[in-house]
Design a protein around this nucleic acid. Structure first.
Length: 921
RNA sequence: GCGGGUGUGUUGAAAUUGGUAGACAAGCUAGACUUAGGAUCUAGUGCCUACGGCGUAUGGGUUCGAGUCCCUUCACCCGCACCA
């Protein structure tokens, strides 16, 4: 029997499913290992060959860990709420539930063909009421909590209420949207509605007015990570800034913890850096400036990281969106300012980004007083100052800040340098170096010294205080959509009231149309009787990241009806040991999940502060398109190498009728009617196509579907090939060149066991040479899997198989461990061979062979010499030398050099391969 | 502009982490067998002015020894971007 992958794969996939081989149960006797893939959004297009890349890698690790004796949790499910299904519903009237179910079925059948070792009993979709019950539950917990800034954790809001009753807002240590000041008496005198309103300022899930990314085309608000370059990530529609009242999560309260615990994670530096930038910690100073606007006078606070430059302040700037801008404008400048604010408001986010270079602004008529110099400086209003960061007001030091500099140049404001010898005639001097001048008590100090000295001074004089600001903003948590989790919130005379836990899950109501209502209400407003005990329910739904923020916990205990996850389950599985997925979630899902986990950790529902210990980002697989070149105005096609002799037009050609960049001429003629009579100008009798790396897409005819590869080569070949393509983390184009190589390897592997219909494995004892081949591979695989270097393991397998073929080795002692070791990569063929060797159980839990180093004796003419176990050089020596002679020789040699090792003792170590190391102790 | 990363044959890529650069595959060339194929096997394949010399984007440095470490320049990729 030849290697018949179709039969083998079908047979063992069915057998695994039937015997529930991958069903996982908690087992205190075994160490746990939790391997998770970022679950997919089931889109209508199905999986292409890029999706399984990470899944294959995680499956390899899962299977390897099982061989190593771990109890492995390896689940899969679907992130099923989201925009595309709803957009489709709006267009076609198809209920998103229906399309989602269809798409999930398609995904499942595609995944099943690849032979993953998921425990499908743990599968769920985020749109299942049994699941989103717990998303709603977590929201209610957040609604019912505040963040205590002194103990750095979430606490019940009732404790804060008790504090207010006793002390008012004094020492309340709660993260909040704005600093409210009230006494206990005031608090106690307030109505329930007023209290509720005040508490919104502190809740972790709260409703508040904020500037949001509004996408008119989608009819919904979007989170910052859902917007790129001023366009929505989904759909690419323009986004504008709008002030709206929205549900939000107080993620900003966790900024510090999210930043600090990054250090403990085994993630790539680039990803951690991305999160650090996104969180954007900056330690600076808040300084109070007195501002005089006509007959009005007001203290305003500015934020700066460079208090040391305060003597160089020549003007101040307010953000046009901030309330201060209108408040501090003097009557004689009112018209201009209003016009300017209107102009800024009209701009879309995209225009703003495009015009960052242009400088705009207007004078407010007000003047600020520099608290250190007493100097009077004009207050301007400009869009380069953002309302959402710091205090929305800055002191401008044009000599030492490039933005202030550009502004000063444009509006002819003075530029006063305060660092000795710097030249500010052409541009500002932003560097934090040099000696201070023109700066009163700071004169003569080094800049770094001056920063600290200025901070101390400002604090000691009560002019301001040190302040750490974060760029991370609270997450906007409502979407004006249908296909998402409903909020378990109703409104009692406009006051938000949580539903009781017993009301969960609050299920999505049936509606017939998914568009927003005529008066701009979200689609849920169309539902009949969308009320709770007579009170209207919230009509927004939760965003996509809500359901994906705690899903890894649910897999631990997916059918629990009493808790998101039971204490026993979470204490056994704890957190994810290995998480594999794309970088696109760096600042979205991976921040929200960490936040969500920390919140549940604070409340004692989970036992680890961080959800994902190790994270690996697989690269994107791009498409590789092929082109033919039509001679303009004819139906003649010229081969790539000759095309420069003609005027040609480049046409995408279906990659399925091209092999190794050579066009199948008949298939091309049959591809489309207009090419039926195509003629070709060939080179060396062949038509060579051009190619380019592009995104995989239908319109470029370059989509490769995993089902087709499974059909033509088998799942094992697909798995091996995706890994063989190159390092996991690297983005690379899909290119079927070379897939034959790995397929050939599997056939060779098969032939070590079989000759035609006969099993040819013997019980003979293995020779040291054969054992050496085996153990070299064992060592390599152990090392490589821990480094996620799967491509080199596969190379090592190829070498081993070639060596064993050369040695004519068909011995069970060698081949049985080889089959076990291959099983993570190519599980179907390994399972078949395992059974061929007479086993009745599955290879899944066979013990991974033990690595023994001794079978590595070899000698050769090249020697490498190392000093202190590190530095080495090679010397050519006669083959016949004994180790002692080698030592003498090397000693003599080294004494001729300046790095003399004369007195040192050499030790000869024999290692695998050609090189003998002579280590100097 | 800031931050992170990458640069090795015709192609995907290896390199015991400072020690024979190009393993393993793909492609190409020649040959064998053949039921002529997208099968199998064998040999060759970095470059040159070839018994030698040169080669890991560029120029320099450290070292007995550099793809690997340090500095310069260039190119490409990714992320952030008026964050004070």
């Amino acid at each position: 029997m030849e290697y018949n992958f179709r039969e083998i794969e079908k047979k063992w996939q069915a057998w695994w499913a039937q015997n529930k081989v991958f069903k996982t149960v908690e087992d205190a006797g075994k160490p746990k290992y939790y391997v998770l893939d970022m679950f997919p959004y089931p889109s209508g297009a199905g999986l292409h060959v890029g999706h399984p890349l990470g899944y294959i890698a995680s499956d390899i690790v899962s299977r390897y860990k099982r061989l190593k004796g771990f109890n492995v949790l390896h689940p899969m499910g679907y992130d099923a709420f989201g925009l595309p299904a709803e957009q489709y519903a709006i267009q076609t009237g198809q209920h998103p539930e229906v399309t989602t179910t269809q798409n999930v079925a398609r995904y499942r059948s595609q995944l099943d063909k690849i032979g993953f070792s998921y425990d499908w009993d743990r599968e769920f979709r985020t749109c299942d009421p049994d699941y989103y019950k717990w998303t709603q539950w977590a929201f209610l917990k957040m609604f019912d909590s505040y963040y205590c800034t002194s103990c750095r954790k979430a606490k019940p809001i009732s404790e804060l209420v008790a504090h207010f009753q006793k002390n008012g807002s004094v020492n309340c240590n709660a993260a909040c949207s704005e600093d409210l000041v009230f006494t206990a008496e005031e608090w106690n005198s307030w109505s329930d509605a007023a209290k509720s309103k005040a508490l919104m300022n502190y809740r972790i899930a709260y409703q508040g007015e904020t500037s949001v990314n509004w996408c008119p085309k989608l009819g919904t608000v979007l989170a910052n990570d859902e917007v790129k370059d001023g366009l929505s990530v989904r759909g690419g529609f323009p986004v504008e800034q709008k002030k709206m009242t929205q549900w939000q999560l107080r993620v900003s309260a966790y900024a510090e913890r999210l930043l600090d615990s990054l250090d403990s994670l085994d993630w790539t530096d680039s990803l951690k850096e991305m999160q650090r930038n996104w969180i954007g910690r900056s330690a600076g100073t808040e300084v109070v400036f007195k501002v005089i606007a006509g007959d009005k006078e007001k203290d305003i606070t500015i934020f700066t990281t460079r208090v040391d430059t305060i003597f160089g302040v020549t003007f101040m700037v307010l953000a046009p969106e901030s309330d201060l801008a209108t408040e501090l404008t003097t009557p004689d400048h009112k018209a201009e300012v209003e016009e300017y604010i209107a102009y800024v408001k009209k701009k879309t986010e995209r225009e703003r980004i495009a015009e960052t270079k242009s400088v705009t602004g207007v004078f407010s008529g007000a003047y600020g007083i520099n608290p250190l110099t007493g100097e009077k400086v004009p207050v301007w209003i400009s869009e380069y100052v953002l309302a959402g960061y710091g205090t929305g007001a800055i002191m401008a030091v044009p000599a030492h800040d490039s933005r202030d500099y550009a502004f000063a140049k444009k509006f002819n404001l003075p530029i006063v340098p305060i660092i000795e010898g710097c030249d500010v005639s052409e541009q500002s001097f932003d560097a934090k170096e040099g000696k201070m001048c023109n700066s009163g008590f700071l004169n003569g100090m080094d800049v770094k010294e001056a920063i600290e000295a200025a901070k101390d001074y400002v604090e000691s004089k009560g002019l301001g205080r040190r302040k750490v600001n974060y760029r991370l903003r609270d997450a906007i948590f409502s979407r004006q959509r249908y296909w998402g989790e409903p909020f378990p919130i109703c409104f009692n005379n406009g006051v938000a009231e949580p539903l009781p836990m017993s009301a969960l899950p609050l299920q999505l109501p049936e509606i017939s149309e998914f568009k927003p209502t005529e008066d701009g209400q979200p689609p849920l407003a169309r539902a009949k009787d969308w009320t709770w005990e007579g009170k209207p329910l919230e009509t927004s739904t939760m965003p996509g990241f809500a359901g994906s923020s705690a899903y890894y916990l649910r897999y631990m205990d997916p059918h629990n009806d009493n808790a998101l996850v039971s204490r026993e389950a979470v204490e056994y599985w704890r957190n994810v040991d290995l998480y594999i997925g794309g970088t696109e979630h760096a600042t979205g899902h991976l921040i929200y999940s960490r936040f969500w986990n920390k919140f549940l950790f604070d409340l004692g529902y989970v036992c680890e502060d961080e959800p994902f210990k190790k994270l690996v980002n697989q690269g994107m697989i791009q498409g590789r398109s092929n082109f033919v070149y039509r001679v303009v105005g004819t139906n003649k096609f010229v081969s790539l190498g000759l095309k420069d002799n003609y005027q040609t037009q480049e046409i995408h050609v279906d990659i399925n009728i091209v092999r190794n960049d050579k066009l199948d001429l008949d298939a091309f003629r049959a591809w489309r009617p207009e090419f039926k009579d195509a003629e070709f100008i060939l080179e060396n009798g062949e038509y060579i196509c051009g190619w380019a790396v592009e995104k995989m897409s239908k319109s470029m005819y370059n989509v490769v579907n995993p089902d087709d590869i499974c059909e033509n080569y088998g799942a094992d070949t697909l798995r091996l090939y995706e890994m063989f393509l190159g390092p996991l983390e690297q983005s690379k184009p899909w290119d079927t060149k070379g897939i034959d190589g790995v397929h050939r390897f599997l056939r060779k592997f098969w032939r070590l066991f079989h000759d035609g219909d006969n099993m040819i494995v013997t019980d003979e004892k293995a020779t040291p040479e054969e054992l050496k081949v085996l153990h070299k591979l064992i060592g390599k695989e152990e090392e490589d899997i821990n480094n996620f270097s799967f491509n080199t393991t596969i190379s090592a397998f190829m070498i081993a198989v070639n060596d064993l073929s050369d040695l004519g080795c068909h011995k069970k002692e060698i081949l049985e461990p080889m089959a076990i070791m291959l099983s993570p990569f190519a599980p179907h063929i390994a399972e078949q061979l395992w059974h061929d060797l007479g086993h009745e159980d599955t290879v899944t839990f066979a013990p991974f062979p033990k690595f023994v180093k001794e079978y590595t004796v070899e000698n050769n003419a090249t020697y490498a010499v190392s000093f202190n176990g590190k530095t080495r050089f090679t010397v050519d020596l006669p083959k016949t030398m004994s180790p002692a002679e080698v030592e003498a020789h090397v000693r003599a040699l080294s004494q001729t050099e300046k790095y003399v090792a004369g007195q040192q003792i050499f030790k000869v170590i024999v290692v695998p391969g050609k090189i003998v190391n002579i280590v100097v102790k």
